[in-house]
Design a protein around this nucleic acid. Sequence first.
DNA 1: TGCCCTTTGAAGCCC
DNA 2: GGGCTTCAAAGGGCA
Length: 214
Amino acid sequence: MISESGSEILFQELGLMIELNQNSAASTCGKPRECDWFTPPQEQYMNLTRGEQNSGTHTQTSVASSVHPLVPLLLYSDRHVPPSCPFTRPIMSTAATQTNTHSKFHPCYHDNITTTRQPVQVKKPLNAFMLYMKGTRHQVLQEGRERESAAINRILGRRWHGLSHSEQSKYYDLAQKERLLHMQLYPGWSARDNYGKRKRKQSQQPLGNRSRLK
DNA sequence: TGCCCTTTGAAGCCC
DNA sequence: GGGCTTCAAAGGGCA
């Protein structure tokens, strides 16, 4: 369980991007300044995280100097949008919805049109390797040797093993923050909620759990 | 259109 | 607690 103060610290760390938000025209709701209606770090963080996930190449470098170099991986994910924001897409787990007075279907105020949107499925938080992949995939693409994701992921898997423990620990730490943030935003959510969302072959991954290198 | 491939790690389930 | 399964991202390939 995360204390409220712990949550604040977490958001404050992620909220280091506030100044960046104010400088970036970016993409919030397609109308950058309209969404600047709150000042707490949480809301500022929401502004930063909304939209513009893209390839992750254009903004990460510009923000890396002021924060932990890996934090942008979190910040520029559209995965975390607290349900308390009336302007954002309703991302809620089933369990969370049961204890929340809001409807699962929030109105959307984009473009002055109020519509009812389908709830967005809450995804699992990214683990260390997924964060590493997300941050370095474009490098492999730029090398131009591979285009298929499966081949790229094989390369990234080898590179991951080639990383030093200290390098890997950065991603483990970031993944830990990701999980903490996820727990804060979606209390009651379980990975079980997403089980059976897609069909898969039987016994596709016989290796099972692999031990962590640390 | 939607699943497969391919990687590692986290989490859930079953025994 | 150990072992297995599913899902998380990505996007080209393929049925």
